[in-house]
Amino acid sequence: MEVLFIILLNLIPVFLFVVLPFFLSWVFGNWHQGRIINRLAAEEMALNNSGAGHPVSNLSKPSQATEIEVSMLVMSSISVGPSWWQMMLGGWKNFFGGRIESYDKMHGYGRRKVLHDMRVQSLQQGFDEIINVRVETSMVTKKSQRDDKTAGYEFIAYGTAIKYSRS
C-alpha cells in the first residue's frame, strides 16, 4: 500500500507538467481553432453572398478588355501555429510517416485567411479584381533548437488590384 502511494505521489508531477498541458491543449485548441475557422467561413460566405463579385485569379492579364483606371499592389499576411497537441501528433507521424492531418487545419486556415483579407482590403478600396495572385509559406520559428518541429508559419498573399474605368 505504501509503495503504491509513493508511485502515485511520483506520478503527480508527470500528470501536472506533461499530461495536463497536452490535455488542455487538445480541449482548448480544438475549441479555439474551430471558433476561428467557423468565423472565417461565415465571413467568406457573407462576402460571396453580398454579390460583390470581385474575381481573384493568378492570371497575369486582366479578365476584361476595359480601360483600367488605377492599379495597386495589395497584400495580406498572417503567422499561425499549430497547438502543442497537434505538434505532438505531428511528431508521432514523423516517426511512422504518412499524412500529418493535424497540421492541415492551421495551414488551410492561414491560406484562406490571407486570401480573404486581401480580397476585403481591395474591395474596401474600390478595386474590381485582383490578378496575378501569389501565395507563399515560410517558417518563422522553431519549436526547439534540436530538431525541425516547426511551431510558426507565415502565409503571405499578394497580387495586383485593378479598378476599371467606369466611363
Binding site: G29, Q33, M106
Partner: peptide, 14 residues
C-alpha cells in the same frame, strides 16, 4: 502555441 491559431506578435513584426 498551446491552443494554436494566429500568432499576432509575429504577424505584426513581419
Amino acid at each position: 502555441n498551446m491552443v494554436g491559431g494566429e500568432l499576432k506578435a509575429y504577424t505584426e513584426l513581419l
